[in-house]
């Protein structure tokens, strides 16, 4: 009697398995959160030191355009104005994403809905290959092909936002495409079947049903693409000119947050203003990508049909 009772009251093997599995997953996500928190804390503590310890005014940091952290201006204030870099980072990222998205989604639609198996099978590994090319190689190809090309067409030196955008376009293309393919694939087959059965053409099905159902996934793909563009340094630095100047147009030399960060961080001494100021750039970068993220999410939330699996 007791035996049966304890057996009934004890959690079954399946339940225990469930707990076990849950525990693993929760600890994994916990680990990631811990990691994110660590990095955020690390960057915030270093980045905020510019304002708390070195007494730089936050507003000046955001709105001035003189970047020479080692020097002071005639009033004795350190010259840390990040505006040109913020503007450039913004424009390069948005332009690259705007340019790459139609191509990437077009390619993804092609691979999932239109092409026969062979076409998709060929395209996918090629696209994945591109992710593995080191950014330095992109940078040098940009320097030897794109920069002279831009110089030939638009004049000037060829270094500038436009060259940066074109290089980034190629670099974010694989990321956006692969993630888009995944989210298009996750649209349930019966949506597509239902639409076609109603007499819709293929394009109507793609445009009105599949793309809408996959919208959140596609947006995530774009976010990851933009994130890559934002964080890319070595390649952009070579083709954008890397000059802390307010960009006058798309072909005047400029500098992004990351390219400045990467060029100078090795030459600064930890704990001094020039070093802290660079960490502040990293902090700005984080906030900007957070902003992008929220905006894209907000857009995504509107006009998306509820996606059930």
């Amino acid at each position: 009697m007791d035996d049966i009772q304890t057996r009934l009251q004890k959690s079954s093997r399946a339940t225990r398995q469930d707990y076990f599995g849950k525990a693993i997953c929760y600890s994994c996500i916990g680990l990631i959160i811990l990691l994110v928190a660590c990095i955020l804390y690390f960057i915030a503590s270093k980045g905020l030191a510019t304002f708390t310890q070195n007494g730089v005014k936050f507003w000046n940091f955001l709105t001035q355009s003189d970047w020479k952290p080692g020097d002071v201006d005639k009033y004795g204030n350190p010259q840390v104005g990040a505006l040109p870099m913020i503007v450039t980072s913004f424009s390069v990222t948005i332009l690259a994403a705007l340019l790459a998205t139609p191509f990437a989604i077009g390619a993804a639609v092609f691979m999932t809905e239109i092409a026969n198996k062979k076409g998709a099978k060929f395209l996918q590994p090629v696209i994945e290959l591109l992710v593995g090319i080191p950014s330095v190689v992109y940078g040098f190809i940009g320097l030897s092909l794109i920069v002279p090309f831009i110089r030939g067409i638009f004049g000037g030196t060829g270094f500038g936002i436009l060259s940066g955008t074109l290089v980034l376009f190629v670099m974010v293309l694989p990321t956006i495409t692969s993630l888009s393919v995944d989210s298009l694939k996750s649209v349930p087959m019966h949506y597509c079947q239902a639409s076609l059965a109603l007499g819709a053409t293929r394009w109507q099905t793609i445009y009105k049903v599949i793309l809408k159902a996959a919208a959140p996934g596609l947006l995530t793909a774009v976010i990851f693409g933009m994130a890559r563009a934002f964080g890319e340094a070595l390649a952009v630095q070579m083709v954008i000119g890397n000059a802390v100047l307010m960009p006058k147009n798309l072909i005047s030399p400029a500098s992004t947050l990351t390219s400045k960060l990467t060029t100078e961080i090795g030459n600064t001494v930890m704990g001094t203003l020039p070093n802290n100021a660079l960490w502040s750039l990293a902090l700005v970068l984080l906030f900007m990508s957070l902003l992008f993220n929220l905006v894209v999410r907000f857009i995504g939330r509107r006009g998306n049909i509820k996606n059930e699996r």
Binding site: I32, I33, L35, V36, I39, L40, I43, T220, I223, F224, M226, A227, R228, F230, G231, E232, A233, L257, T258, L261, T262, I265, A282, L285, L286, S289, L290, N293, L294, R297
Partner: peptide
């Protein structure tokens, strides 16, 4: 969101 933001960190950071 935090996972996505993490992915935008420049590799040098």
């Amino acid at each position: 969101t935090s996972i996505e933001v993490l992915s935008s960190l420049p590799s040098v950071v």
